[in-house]
Design a protein around this nucleic acid. Structure first.
Length: 284
DNA sequence: CTTACGGCCTGGGTGC
DNA sequence: TGCACCCAGGCCGTAA
């Protein structure tokens, strides 16, 4: 499942091959995950890719319309759960569930494959970019400790839900949320408002460490994630809690538990990550 | 306004 | 062999 480190790895790969390239033709398969397929077919052919960047879990390719016109727009891609982008020779065999093909001016082809089609693709004109991306919260790697703490302090939702909320922090998903909470020794059901500042600072450090290490290891390949060169990541070898239910905690004798928190399966060590005092429903 | 929750989309994996 | 069921991330509607 592509989260921040996987998307960052894909973006770095694309950045090595796409800037300067021109899109010659567009071919589409199933289009139900594309906001406006006709816009892709209309605007992309002849356009030039100026840059590629990551915004949370989104990939943003900045484009310039065909020769001379100077009109700039962007292609926004979200990989969802199973989205993959590969840039390679146009004669390479086509993977199943490949629904987008861009022929590039160096003879290669940009392909988007997405088994479940939970991904999203849309064209952003200059005016709509802020509306599409402005709602997102802090980048967890760019946020200072003070900004991070300020964003979570006083919030009454569970810390797991807050970390997953893209309006609070952009880019965290289920894996890195659980791994960060384990490192910070914070139970996923704790409420933001009940965390001490020292705990929030510890969490900030844990989030940064986990994400940075995961990026160095080119992400986690749990099921089918591969980067733009078709390479798997290796951070799954460093997972301490994710999908380790019943196994021994790396820090002691605790056994990793699984529970649904914020509607997501969550893994944690009940010994290192003490549960909040369960003051349940007080309804009459 | 904030939070919680259920449902929806899709299809591979699992278990019976 | 078949098939019901689970699950994933984001989003939306609804309720408290």
């Amino acid at each position: 499942m592509p989260e921040l480190p996987e998307v960052e790895t894909v973006v770095r790969g694309l950045r090595a091959v796409l800037p300067g390239r021109r899109i010659l033709t567009v071919r589409l398969g199933k289009v139900d995950f594309i906001e406006d397929p006709a816009a892709l077919e209309r605007d992309l052919p002849g356009s030039r890719i100026n840059s590629v960047r990551r915004h949370g879990k989104f990939i943003v390719a900045e484009l310039e319309a065909s020769t001379g016109s100077q009109v700039s727009f962007a292609l926004l891609i979200h990989l969802g759960m199973t989205g993959q982008i590969v840039v390679g020779p146009s004669e390479a065999p086509v993977a199943p569930h490949t629904h987008v093909f861009f022929a590039l001016d160096d003879g290669r082809e940009f392909r988007y494959t997405d088994i479940r089609r939970f991904g999203k693709m849309r064209i952003l004109s200059a005016g709509t970019q802020e509306a599409a991306l402005g709602k997102l919260g802090l980048d967890p790697l760019e946020a200072t400790q003070a900004e991070f703490v300020a964003q979570l302090r006083g919030r009454r939702a569970r810390i797991k839900a807050l970390l997953l909320d893209q309006r609070v922090l952009r880019g965290m998903g289920n894996i890195y949320t659980d791994e960060s909470l384990w490192r910070a020794r914070i139970h996923p059901m704790r409420l933001g408002a009940n965390l001490r500042d020292t705990e929030l600072r510890r969490l900030h450090r844990a989030v940064r460490q986990v994400l940075e290490e995961a990026i160095r290891m080119r992400g986690s390949s749990v099921s089918d994630y591969v980067d733009s060169e078709g390479q798997r990541g290796s951070f799954q070898q460093r997972h301490r809690v994710y999908q380790r239910k019943g196994k021994k905690c790396f820090r002691g004798d605790g056994l990793i538990q699984r529970a649904i928190v914020a509607g997501r399966s969550s893994y944690f060590c009940p010994r290192c990550q003490p549960a909040p005092r369960s003051r349940r429903r007080i309804s009459p």
